[in-house]
Simulated scan of single mutants.
Amino acid sequence: MSEEKKEQIDAIKKNDRDQAQRYIVWGVVTVLINLSIFYILAHTLNVEYQVANFVAWFLSVQCSFWFEKILVFHHESKHVVKDISKFYGTRILTFLIESVILWLGISVLGFHEVITKIIGHGLAVLGNYFLSKLVVFKKIVVGDSI
């Protein structure tokens, strides 16, 4: 392998590592937003847990889109509506998965709401990273269609 190829591979690895680190930092902020809203609604205001989960999800996804677009992936698309549509589409998928986990954990198995929420949301966050990187904010290679 040529020295130039090694340098390119190293640059790609560094970029991926930096993106993952930024995703973790801003993901923690987003998770805290999500959990805080869920806790306030479900425990302080006694809102039904699925409604509380939806409101927490919607508001945290809005924050997450802008964090990821600007701060994590440095995505410079001029098609914000298209990007946000794809973003919400992928988030709907992981929201549905999280909702099933909440239903199973809370309603079927009787686990604690917040602990179940943390587990379900953790799995959703993992899926969200890969969907954001590979679907929503993927780099367009010259010759690819937009």
Rank of each mutant, 00 (worst) to 15 (best):
Lys86Gln: 09
Leu104Ala: 08
Leu93His: 00
Leu109Phe: 15
Leu71Ile: 03
Lys139Pro: 01
Ser60Glu: 10
Gly105Met: 10
Ala11Glu: 14
Leu123His: 04
Gln19Ser: 09
Ser145Pro: 01
Ile115Lys: 13
Leu109Ile: 08
Phe137Ser: 07
Ala42Tyr: 06
His79Gln: 06
Gln50Ile: 12
Gly143Gln: 10
Asn34Leu: 09
Phe111Lys: 08
Glu76Ala: 14
His43Ser: 10
Leu96Val: 14
Phe67Arg: 02
Gly127Pro: 05
Asn53Arg: 08
Gly122Glu: 06
Val136Gln: 11
Lys82Gln: 09
Ala56Glu: 05
Lys133Met: 00
Glu76His: 15
Val100Pro: 08
Gly122Pro: 08
Lys86Cys: 00
Tyr88Asp: 04
Val114Ile: 14
Val72Met: 02
Val25His: 05
Glu98Val: 02
Asp10Thr: 06
Thr116Met: 04
Val80Glu: 11
Phe58Thr: 14
Lys117Gln: 12
Gly122Ile: 01
Thr94Pro: 09
Asp18Gln: 14
Gly110Cys: 01
Gly127Ser: 04
Ile140Glu: 11
Asn34Arg: 00
Gly143Val: 04
Ile37Val: 15
Ser85Val: 11
Lys138Gly: 00
Gly143Glu: 09
Met1Cys: 09
Leu59Arg: 09
Gly120Ala: 06
His74Lys: 14
Gln62Thr: 12
Leu123Glu: 01
Tyr23Ala: 12
Ile70Glu: 13
Trp57Cys: 00
Leu45Ile: 09
Val55Lys: 03
Glu113Arg: 12
Tyr88Trp: 07
Val51Thr: 14
Val72Cys: 05
Ile24Leu: 14
Ile140Met: 09
Ala42Met: 07
Trp26His: 05
Val135Glu: 00
Ser85Arg: 12
Leu123Arg: 02
Leu126Arg: 00
His121Arg: 10
Val31Glu: 01
Arg22Gly: 04
Leu123Ile: 12
Val47Gln: 09
Leu104Ile: 13
Gly89His: 08
Val29Lys: 07
Lys69Asn: 11
Phe73Val: 04
Val25Ala: 10
Phe87Leu: 07
Phe87Glu: 05
Ser2Ala: 07
Arg22Val: 00
Thr90Lys: 06
Tyr49His: 13
Gly143Phe: 08
Glu3Met: 13
Lys69Ile: 02
Leu102Met: 14
Val51Tyr: 01
Val28Gln: 02
Thr116Gln: 01
Lys86Glu: 12
Phe87Ser: 08
Glu4Phe: 06
Leu35Phe: 15
Thr94Cys: 07
Leu131Ala: 14
Gly122Ala: 09
Lys117Asp: 04
Ala52Val: 02
Asp18Leu: 13
Gly27Trp: 05
Asn53Met: 09
Asp10Phe: 12
His75Arg: 05
Asp18Tyr: 03
Val51Arg: 01
Ser64Lys: 03
Ala52Arg: 09
Phe130Tyr: 15
Gly105Ala: 01
Ile37Pro: 10
Lys86Phe: 03
Ser64Asp: 04
Gln19Thr: 13
Gln8Ser: 07
